[in-house]
Design a protein around this nucleic acid. Structure first.
Lengths: 137, 137
DNA sequence: AGAACAAAAATTTAACACAATTTAAAGCAA
DNA sequence: TTGCTTTAAATTGTGTTAAATTTTTGTTCT
């Protein structure tokens, strides 16, 4: 059963290989997902969004973003992300995917009211489907 | 190509679901592995080894053990493990599988000279195969 | 009516087989 | 010897099928 008509493209940003592997597996099993892209760092994500995407139809619909990453964390990524001068990325939904219980992260999430959701690791297929439903509403 | 004649049973002890998922995937792709068991905690591992194994042929040949786990860490597990009063577990090889750089963990590993190897996460198929080769030598 | 059990449906997980990409290796030529 | 090309090997990715688990539904019995 596909919960939505349109097919969604998902970008996962996480420095942990095992997490990425699990996330991709869950995403690809969902009938509403047409493609998944994994990157290991926020830096790679910026590079991907700015350089690698040539056609608008290639841009992700949803980004699942880890917070705790070396070099550039999730919040720092978002600061850069929103400055990307491109119509391409305007309506990409952002979902925080973190195992953090840190109140400062929760506050960060609440203060940035453009973010779609805050999902606790590990991702599971039910949780993932809920996010997709949220995107379509 | 199977590097060994006998088929090996692997037990993974890790509290992270994503890590377990990746580990299992890698292990099951190896032709020398006949079965994999995953447990989420050291406590479950003890329970599994003491209670769930009835036949000697069911016991694992290798245990991949995470160090940093809540409630009971890897070293604490080993202390309990070696006290298990059962011939069943005598010649199980122990491999530490951790992302820790902590010198105290390295020292712990060196001081316990019965341990087969210390492997850094994330596990990959080459690394895994190397461990299997070590077991057979 | 409510609890409990059993059957059916649906969802999740695992197993398998195949394709594609990447990596390593061997051989040859400059 | 160095670099390049071809071949082989191995890792990774993908899709399909089958098994197992969970949820739902309906029926019976108290």
């Amino acid at each position: 059963m596909s919960i939505v008509d349109k097919q969604l493209r998902i970008l996962f940003i996480d420095d942990d290989k095992a997490t990425n592997f699990l996330n991709k597996h869950i995403a690809k099993k969902n009938a509403s997902v047409s493609s998944t892209v994994l990157v290991d760092s926020a830096f790679e994500a910026i590079d991907y969004l700015e350089k690698k995407i040539v056609n608008p139809e290639d841009r992700p619909d949803i980004i699942f973003l880890d917070i705790n990453m070396p070099a550039m964390n999730g919040w720092e990524f978002l600061d850069v992300f929103y400055k990307i001068d491109s119509g391409l990325i305007k309506d990409i939904e952002i979902v925080i995917l973190s195992s953090s219980d840190d109140p400062s992260d929760i506050n960060q999430f609440k203060s940035r009211n453009t973010l779609l959701d805050f999902v606790k690791k590990p991702l599971d297929s039910k949780l993932f489907n809920d996010v997709l439903l949220k995107v379509c509403s």
